[in-house]
Design a protein around this nucleic acid. Sequence first.
DNA 1: TTATTGGATTATGTCATACATAATGCGTTT
DNA 2: AAACGCATTATGTATGACATAATCCAATAA
Lengths: 237, 237
Amino acid sequence: MTDKTKNNSLNITAVDSSSLVDKVEQTLIDLLISEKLNPGDQIPKELELTEMLGVSRTVIREALNRLKTIGLIESTKRKGSTIKSPDLLFLLKKSLIPNILDQATLKDIFELRLVIEIGMSDLIYNRATPEDIAELEQIVATEPDSSKEVLFDVDHEIKFHGKLYQISGNHTLIDFQTILLPAFRYVYDSGMIKSPDHDSKWVSHQDLVKILKDGNANKFRNAMRKHLDRHFKGYFK
Amino acid sequence: MTDKTKNNSLNITAVDSSSLVDKVEQTLIDLLISEKLNPGDQIPKELELTEMLGVSRTVIREALNRLKTIGLIESTKRKGSTIKSPDLLFLLKKSLIPNILDQATLKDIFELRLVIEIGMSDLIYNRATPEDIAELEQIVATEPDSSKEVLFDVDHEIKFHGKLYQISGNHTLIDFQTILLPAFRYVYDSGMIKSPDHDSKWVSHQDLVKILKDGNANKFRNAMRKHLDRHFKGYFK
DNA sequence: TTATTGGATTATGTCATACATAATGCGTTT
DNA sequence: AAACGCATTATGTATGACATAATCCAATAA
């Protein structure tokens, strides 16, 4: 009965509630960084780590398993674990489950798409081959008639813009798009984005291809901005 | 001693070499998706899963541990594991250790930065407050004299552009920048990027701020493109 | 009655041990 | 010299035990 009121006592030093595995994980990551290890290098065996860090093999394994999950190491039977150059996007793919993401993040991601597609213009303009342009022309040729204000064709939208990503030639970007696709589709389907209301300055897919073919980098970039304008309108009024 | 030569037998059906944990992990992820679970919902206890899937608790725990690592669930004592809205960028932060990434990925990431900063122009232009602009002016005022072709000041570069990300107001983007910063710095330091050679059309930070203040969205976007031109030059010659 | 206390309970966290399995190397056999 | 079998090694899986934090609930004291 003396002073069991721990909660009221001051001068608490904020004990870390992290689990053992958390600590070991961080220790290992620090080790990777400080030791300047390169992909292919080996890290100590589980049992060695057990002794080095003074915890059970269970904890070591759970920590290693985490590194494996984020792609920093890979393990084979007899050989042990080796450093690996992580595939950054592989991770996103696993954790990006649209119906679990909150609205704010989804909105951020959709906005990120706009940002990327505009900024990507310069890559596209500089790297598009005649074959790429031909393919784009092919795609718009089979396009549903946009003048009729028909239902927004998500699949076609994705087809055209997907080709643009591919032209960009940046693999991280390409992966990025395929990963974010479920989120895009989810946003489209959920009605967060209003259907198109083409005003006089509207730039169609067809216009874009024409400018890509005969215009210049600046024109193409600004055209892309106008093409995406209806989405921006949701944000800036 | 009879027929131990299993290896030579034909009609092999490509046995999957994935471990038990791999399978359980995928099973659980599929479960999350198909069950349309929302953040906060509980998933079965470890022992229940043990029975449901017919594997040991070890395997269940390792699989759960992976989901925990990619931020899909979190676990507390007594309560069990619950669904969580994953922080997409949190993972990248952990796995992005520049000296482990390969050159190609580093180049992609740096290129991605250019793409984002150009595309971000519209967000910046539409969301910059007078206070933001004042702060930018403050930053360029303390800028080392760029006319002297001095050493490229990475810290200052990051300070200015960091503020731009902040103005964009997109939290995913902001996180993205802080995460990619180590990679940027690494690229700068490693000499993959050549030092600036300002040509006649060079747009300085100071110019950018002026245009942001008195120009329009198109001008600002194109100015940003010119500002980053020296980096692009490395790619398109 | 109300608030506090102190188990009892529950599910995750950690430990220890044993065995399974795949990869590798080495020596024996033919 | 090539093929086979065996021992070795380190990760993968299973099991049982106990530690620990969170929670509930009943007993107790004000």
